[in-house]
């Protein structure tokens, strides 16, 4: 299906993507600080959404616990930076490895005991909440106070910058990397296996697919890259707190974009983030001003309902059809 979409789309697609990328590369030059920081968040959620998409979209194992991976990335890189002076670039990778290991544990427990579908949602949520509560009580990591990252002067080595232009490019680079990873996965043996597992796990097993190993691989990859976003988060905001980087709300935030855009498609998370993130930021800002905390979550809820009812495949496939000039394959 993916590899064989209409030929016109095949010709138009790369041109569109290349054009968009050029526009985005130059964006900080013509956009003000407000829009630049909005775009940073757009990239951030598109990135985390793409990470989630590898497990939840392609492999069809819907996780409501990705905040755990992101939080581990954030806390690991920050702790290593503050207490051992390690550059966040390496701390990022360390966090990624830790998150991947955790992902393997969660995955093993779940898959070994045939926990699928709705129950996978439940068990990932439970694991993530455990980490959330642990972090709240771990005084050495700031506990319920959170951790403030000290600013020690702008430097690439420390991933600390004044203004947001450099963060913008880091975020964009992350998004480009994960998109290339997902694209490579789509065309790989593992990627095809994952989709087959999503479509029918027993049929895959009958055809010789080691479904356990594939699902574990997807979990590890997804967890690893999600953790990188956590390191970016702490360096961008200079502050992490369990209620921010380890909360269910963040897990919802992560899965919402790919679901809205189209789970299991390459551009779903990106399209979803471009639609949703500015909207979310606006409503968050607006409703916190009015003292209506929680209203943006009502909007999220309504959006989830609407998407499931009206676009169960997400909106990206519809857009793709438009790009393809209505001639569907």
């Amino acid at each position: 299906m993916r590899a064989f979409t209409g030929e016109r789309a095949a010709r138009r697609g790369p041109m569109l993507v290349g054009g968009a990328l050029l526009l985005l590369l130059a964006a900080p030059l013509y956009l003000g600080s407000y829009w630049t920081s909005t775009l940073i968040l757009v990239f951030f959620y598109a990135y985390t959404g793409q990470c989630w998409n590898i497990l939840g979209g392609y492999a069809g194992q819907v996780s409501l616990g990705h905040a755990a991976f992101l939080g581990i990335g954030a806390y690991t890189s920050t702790a290593l930076f503050m207490f051992a002076g390690l550059t966040p670039w390496l701390g990022m990778l360390a966090g990624g490895v830790l998150a991947a290991l955790l992902g393997l544990c969660i995955g093993f427990v779940s898959f070994r005991f045939h926990i699928r579908g709705a129950y996978f949602i439940l068990i990932t949520l439970a694991f993530a909440e455990i980490f959330h509560l642990l972090a709240l009580h771990l005084e050495s990591l700031g506990g319920a106070q959170g951790l403030f990252v000290p600013f020690t002067g702008a430097s690439w080595a420390k991933m600390q910058f004044k203004g947001n232009t450099n963060y913008y490019y880091v975020a964009l680079a992350l998004l480009v990397v994960i998109t290339l990873v997902a694209r490579a996965l789509e065309r790989s043996k593992l990627g095809l296996y994952l989709v087959a597992i999503r479509e029918d796990e027993d049929a895959s097993r009958a055809l010789g697919v080691n479904t356990m190993r594939c699902k574990l691989a997807a979990t590890a990859i997804s967890a690893f890259f999600t953790a990188l976003a956590g390191a970016f988060y702490s360096n961008y905001f200079f502050y992490i707190h369990p209620d921010e980087v380890l909360d269910v709300e963040l897990s919802v935030d992560i899965l919402l974009r790919p679901i809205v855009g189209g789970a299991g498609t390459l551009f779903g998370p990106i399209v979803g983030s471009f639609i949703l993130t500015p909207l979310a930021e606006l409503s968050r800002a607006y409703f916190s001003k009015e003292g209506l905390i929680g209203t943006h979550l009502i909007i999220y809820g309504l959006l989830l309902i609407a998407v499931v009812l009206f676009f169960p495949r997400g909106v990206a496939p519809y857009l793709a059809r438009l790009v393809a000039g209505k001639r569907t394959s």
């Binding site: 299906m1 590899a3 064989f4 095809l192 296996y193 989709v195 087959a196 479509e199 029918d200 027993d202 049929a203 895959s204 055809l207 697919v209």
Partner: peptide, 14 residues
């Protein structure tokens, strides 16, 4: 039990 959302060819490629 075909993989419904995969193409016929992809089904066999798996």
């Amino acid at each position: 039990r075909p993989f419904l959302r995969l193409s016929v060819l992809e089904n066999v490629v798996v």
